[in-house]
Design a protein around this nucleic acid. Structure first.
Ligand code: FES
Ligand code: FES
Lengths: 169, 169
DNA sequence: CCCATACCGTACTGCGTCGGTCCAGTTAGC
DNA sequence: GCTAACTGGACCGACGCAGTACGGTATGGG
């Protein structure tokens, strides 16, 4: 159904949390805006091993920086505005390839040869890729908050943008 | 991986074949441009039951017209230029809903409430939907044929646009 | 009137991928 | 040296998809 995996959704949640925590620690005067995966897990509600898995994928894609050892953790590699949705999807779910026979996935289609849409999906694929590339996480974060159907606590709704995950720690 | 199902791919193949066959029968003087699912199956190489399944989905979405009874078959409901890729995807794979918590799929996300990206995916979802809506099957068919990597028979390459599926019948 | 043809709907099953978990290993602070 | 935390890989159950099968219905021809 053209559905993206839940891991990608979690990745966005984690990244947003990471950005928000960044700001919080910076405001507190700490020079080390680093968050651990257990901390992010308890802040977002996502099970901890899953958070670790997602962060691992994001780290290998250079979307976050990892600091090993004790007092280690993760840090955003770039500001949210510099990260597009396509980057996140590519980091977690692999390259964007709608079908098996686009440029990305080298010839896995079993109809290759007598299929009428030989490489035509590339057009659609590129269109989607551009659309996803044009949207940054900053855009998603500062969207017009169209949650008209799901009212949360008034205090949370009243807060500016990073209103969520106020139950952290 | 943001991958669309193989059935959708087949649907495009079948629709293109249907349009091409339409033209062929019209040229032959027949007033009934109708093709049976077995005929399309043998023309495209897709297994027959799968073709029937796809055609059923397309028929219930009013993308093709079905004529029952003996000498029945399927016919295009609209010209290819009037059918967008989004229509085909929606017909075969259900509505386009990237995640479980967009407007389409009513609240299936288990993080609902403390998730930071409450309804923000709608932005991405709409972008993709518009991108897919803007591409018609005609566009896919008349794409610049970027099959630089996969050379077919020269005769087929030399033919104008609907060069494919020449091995029909 | 009867039969062949072809669509229609549903139900079933095997398989591949995804979501989630676990464990051993490595690095760096204390 | 010990502990906290990341790293990489493997493992397994669950779910959805791809494909198949069967009975039913409608139409046209003999
Ligand atoms: S779907 Fe891959 S060649 Fe047609
Ligand atoms: S993913 Fe559905 S509410 Fe966050």
């Amino acid at each position: 159904m053209l559905r993206l995996s839940k891991l990608t959704d979690y990745a966005v949640v984690v990244l947003l949390r990471l950005a928000d925590g960044d700001r919080a620690t910076c405001r507190a005067g700490l020079s080390e805006p680093v968050q651990t995966s257990p901390g992010i897990a308890v802040a977002t509600g996502v099970p901890e091993p899953t958070v670790a898995k997602v962060l691992k994928s994001l780290a290998s894609a250079n979307l976050v920086l990892s600091l090993r050892g004790a007092r280690g953790g993760y840090r955003l590699a770039r500001p949210l505005a510099e990260v597009s949705v396509a980057d996140v999807i590519a980091a977690v779910d692999g390259p964007i390839a709608l079908t098996a026979c686009v440029d990305g996935g080298a010839g896995g289609c079993d109809l290759q040869g007598l299929c009428a849409v030989e490489g035509r999906w590339d057009l659609v694929n590129d269109a989607i890729r551009q659309a996803l590339d044009r949207i940054s996480l900053e855009d998603m974060c500062s969207a017009s908050v169209p949650v008209a159907f799901r009212v949360m606590e008034p205090e949370l709704v009243a807060l500016p943008v990073p209103a969520v995950s106020a139950a952290a720690v």
